[in-house]
Each structure stands twice: as C-alpha cells, then as structure tokens.
Design a protein around this nucleic acid. Structure first.
Lengths: 207, 207
DNA sequence: CCAGTCCTCGCATACTTATGTGATTTTTTG
DNA sequence: CAAAAAATCACATAAGTATGCGAGGACTGG
C-alpha cells in the first residue's frame, strides 16, 4: 500500500517539481498539491494523506497555523515542514504546532523522499542544524544552578509548593510543623535570592 | 584533519569492534577506547577527542553522569550516546545532560559512522524512534488549554505574576489599580480552577 | 439597540506569607 | 571526635493574598 502524500507550497514551479518527484517514486502516491491552506480541512477529508509536505510562508494561512489545525483534527497524519526558514522562532513554533519533521529547502530531493519514508515509519527527520537546535534546547544549563544548592528537604518543600500546596498542606505532606516549613522556605529564599513563593516556583519550574 | 573519536563501552567485544570500525575508516582517528569513565577527565585532557561515543550502562559511573561532566568541562566535545535503552527516562536524561546524538545499538555500523560525521558537522543524529519521541515532547497539547480561555488583560496579569511580581507591582506595571488586579486574578482563578497564585503560575509555566 | 463580554475600580475581612529572633537535635564530614 | 550542615520547632508581627459584594463605562455582535 503506497504512502499518500499531499503538498502545500505556494511556489508553483517547486510545487510541480515536488509533485512530480512524488508521483514518479515507487510506493509513493500524490494525494494533492496546493498553493494555500484555505480548503485544508476539505482536502484532507477528501484525500486522506498519510504525510503532508508543508511550506511555512503560505498566503492567507501560514503553514504553522495549518500544521496546528491539521495536528488537532487529523492526529494520525504527519506533517513534514519544508521551508527556507531556519530561525529558532519559526522552527520551534512549527514543532510545537505539531510538525513531525523539519527540512530546509536546500535538502536534496533524494533526502526529501527518504524523509517522507522515515516519517511514515515513525521517525522524525530534521535537517542536521535543526536537529542540533532542538537538542540544544533540551540541554540543561551548564552553569551550576542555584537550585542545586538546596538540601533534599528544601527541595522537597519547594516541589510541594510548586505543586500548588499552601504552607499548611506542605506541612501535612512532609509530616513536619508549619513553622519548620517556614524555616525551610526562609532558607530557600536566601539561596535562590527571592522573596516570595511565586519567584521561587518560577525558578523551580523554568530551570 | 581527521575526526578524533573516543569510545566508552564496557562490553569489550563491542568496544573492540567499534574501535576497529573507527580505525579502519578514512578521516576517522581513534582517540581511546575504555570500559569505564573513572578516568574520564584525564583521558579527555590527554587525547582531546572531537566526538565521544558513550554507552549508558557503565560500571561505577553511568554514561549519563559522565555526559553531564563532559558537557560541563569540555563543551566543545560532542557526545553521541550509543545504547540499548530506549525508555523515555534515560533518553531525556541523557539529552538533558548534554548529549548531541542518541543512537540505539541496533543501528548498523555504516549508520554509526555517518552519525559521527554528522555530529562533527553540527548535526544531532538520532535513531528514528528517538527523534520522534523528542519531537513529540515538544508538541503542544492538542487539547484546547484552559490558558487559552484567558482574556488578553488576564493573560498579561498572569504573565506579570509569573515573573515574580506582587499585586502591587502588577498594578504598577499594567497601570491599573490594585483592586482591578484583584478582579482579574479572581477571573483567572475561576477559569483555571485554582485558588492561589502558586497554582495559577504552575499551570502557566508548565503549559 | 440590547445582551454579553471585557476592563475598570472600591471596600471589607478572614486567611496566608514574609521575616525577625532564638533554640534543640540529628546527620555529615574532615 | 569536633565543627559544620541539616532538620526540627516556637512565637510574633507587618504585609500580602483570597474572596464576597457591588458597580460603571467601552466595545461587539446580533
């Protein structure tokens, strides 16, 4: 059973080239090629592609917005972004919106076909620089964090606070008196250089 | 100039095989192959590899711990994890620790060599399933979020609170009275179903 | 033009936090 | 073992937060 592919790309020569590429490849089947996403929903319902090749800079509705809709309404269809943009904002917006792959347009045709196959088989192909960017975004800060200065007990108290507990509830959870909770929080504030639960939790959650 | 590669792998046959693979490949140079990370620092300083091939399940010091140290002390050296583990905990712990690539041991030798080259050139090779996992972790929840129910003004107030501001400071920043701030917060609590700044911020920051 | 939503402001009160000061016990570590 | 660090508890007060009740003006889409 062939992999069904739809293409959204406003540059017609490129769109035609991609369509041809797909059509002339074994095991791939073109499920539509369009210059905008104005009828996305209807086209999706009509042709049920397995993989959508999506440009970002489209007229009226951006590819990122379209990816979001598509991911919401057709969670089984994978979106492979194909764009010239490699700025972090668009890369991460697209991924957050639900893209399963992100290729730059300089990618050679053979690699694009490989990537489609890879997406279909449960992978997430990315251009090397994009993958590195994604990886880096997950790296923990190399600087030793203030949070690492907390003692185990203090860390526990902070975690409980971040879970939405009041002093009273933390005391109950940790089986200590509320005054002890206060003392721990005092120390936490000193170490994190803050003066409210709010700030402490912000540091904790955005580490 | 050849790419210098160090290997940390406690299974000796596999370690020898990897070492041989590297040694017999053009443009690659073996900078050491070890069964544990006990002398990591000294070995790194002595041989200055460009890429480190790292197993996770090592005696004494885990590959994840080693990756963390390595990433802190030698930020220019890239770590490529090569392991049998594909559970989310280890995958993400390794990546957070600073890994620049993550391959499963079932990866064919040719692909391992490709991956080393890719890491060296600024990429971040991952086994397909791993890449998909990473991608998914960045996807925004498909369910419409409570936070999207907030009006612009409410969102502003919540953002200011999450930045560590008190009611008074929020009032000043937003140029409104503190009573208005209270009202907005009241609505925010209703919409997010919470009863304290703490909980509201937790929802905001962990969106 | 009217119902609905948003943004604004005020007042009051019970409850919670922030912070000062002080102290005892247990655990860790050189 | 002795010093240092961690964990525990107490009491007190100023400041801040949570929530109830009430209300007027601006804008929006029937």
């Amino acid at each position: 059973m062939a992999i069904r592919i739809s293409i959204y790309e406003d540059n017609q020569p490129l769109r035609d080239a991609l369509a041809l590429l797909v059509q002339t490849t074994d095991n791939f089947e073109l499920a539509g090629a369009y210059g905008d996403c104005l009828n996305l929903d209807q086209q999706m319902t009509a042709h049920r592609p397995d993989v959508v090749l999506m440009d970002i800079d489209l007229p009226e509705i951006s590819g990122i917005e379209a990816t979001l809709q598509l991911h919401r309404r057709f969670p089984d269809t994978d979106v492979l972004i194909l764009t010239v943009f490699d700025d972090s904002d668009r890369v991460f917006d697209a991924i957050k919106a639900g893209a399963t792959g992100y290729l730059l347009k300089k990618t050679p045709p053979a690699r694009i076909l490989e990537a489609i196959q890879e997406v279909y088989e449960g992978g997430a192909p990315m251009s090397p620089g994009i993958a590195r960017r994604v990886m880096k975004s997950l790296h923990r800060s190399t600087a030793p964090h203030e949070l690492d200065q907390l003692t185990p007990r203090e860390a526990t108290v902070l975690a409980l606070l971040a879970a939405g507990n009041s002093y009273k509830m933390v005391a109950a959870e940790a089986a200590i008196s509320i005054d002890t909770v206060r003392t721990h929080i005092r120390r936490i504030y000193e170490k994190l250089h803050v003066h409210s639960v709010t700030e402490a939790i912000a540091k904790y959650l955005t580490r």
